[in-house]
Amino acid sequence: MNAQQMVEHLIDQVRYTNGVKTPVDTGLPPDFAERKQRGLNLSYDFPRNIILGTLPEDYEYDDIETAKQQLVKEVETFHRYFAANPGLEVLHGGFGIMNYNEWVIWHGKHFTHHFKQFGIIQ
């Protein structure tokens, strides 16, 4: 994964929680409640070098600067979407239904994982 692929990956994932894309229920793993508890635990970091799928061959955006601007827009849309829909819950494929606060934690951890991966933060 290069930097632009990482930014576009984050865009794609946020879109599942801001009303742009609809998550598909493919069935939760039997240990989803434990995974959710661990995944939302702030003291638990993602494992390094995990690969959970293939990367798209083509970029959605012409350059990384445009992708970064779009990521900011998608995150802003995420916050507005939940503010406009009090009590909204959205499916996470591995953890089940999550509310706004849980998604804020999850996105924060996901972004942190990739930002550490690319040396943006320590």
Rank of each mutant, 00 (worst) to 15 (best):
V90Y: 00
Q37T: 15
L42A: 13
L40P: 05
Q70D: 03
V20E: 09
Y100D: 01
N18H: 07
I51H: 13
D45C: 09
E65T: 14
V72M: 07
F46Y: 15
T66A: 13
L40I: 10
R38G: 00
F78A: 07
V90T: 12
L10Y: 01
I121S: 05
G39D: 03
H114D: 02
F82T: 00
K21L: 15
A3I: 03
T17D: 00
Q13F: 08
P56F: 07
H79A: 10
V72Q: 11
V90L: 14
E74N: 13
H79I: 05
I121K: 08
V20L: 07
P29D: 05
Q5G: 09
A84E: 15
G93D: 14
R48T: 11
I64C: 03
F115P: 01
D62P: 04
V20F: 06
P29E: 04
G93H: 05
Y100R: 10
G27R: 08
T17Y: 04
A67D: 00
L91A: 04
G94T: 02
E34F: 04
G19A: 08
K36S: 08
D25P: 04
L91K: 03
P56K: 12
Y44F: 14
P56V: 08
E65N: 13
D45L: 11
I97W: 14
I121H: 06
E8S: 11
R38N: 04
T54W: 02
S43I: 12
L91P: 01
F111G: 05
V20I: 14
K21I: 02
G39Q: 03
F111A: 14
I97V: 04
I64Y: 05
T112A: 15
W103I: 09
A84L: 13
F111T: 10
V75D: 00
I51G: 05
G87P: 02
F46K: 06
I51A: 15
T26V: 09
T26K: 13
A83P: 00
N101A: 13
L10C: 12
M1K: 11
N2Y: 10
W103E: 01
V24G: 01
G87F: 06
L10D: 00
I121W: 08
Y16K: 03
Q122L: 11
D25A: 11
Y16V: 03
V90N: 01
P23D: 05
E89C: 06
D63M: 08
D31T: 07
P86D: 10
H114W: 03
T22N: 11
G39R: 02
Q5T: 12
M98Y: 04
E60V: 13
Y44V: 15
R15S: 11
N18M: 05
K116D: 02
H110R: 07
V104K: 14
L71T: 04
S43T: 15
T54V: 12
Q117G: 07
L88W: 01
E89W: 01
N99T: 12
Q117D: 09
T26S: 10
K68N: 02
H110S: 03
V72S: 06
L28I: 08
F115M: 15
P86M: 10
E8Q: 12
Q5P: 00
K21F: 12
Q4K: 13
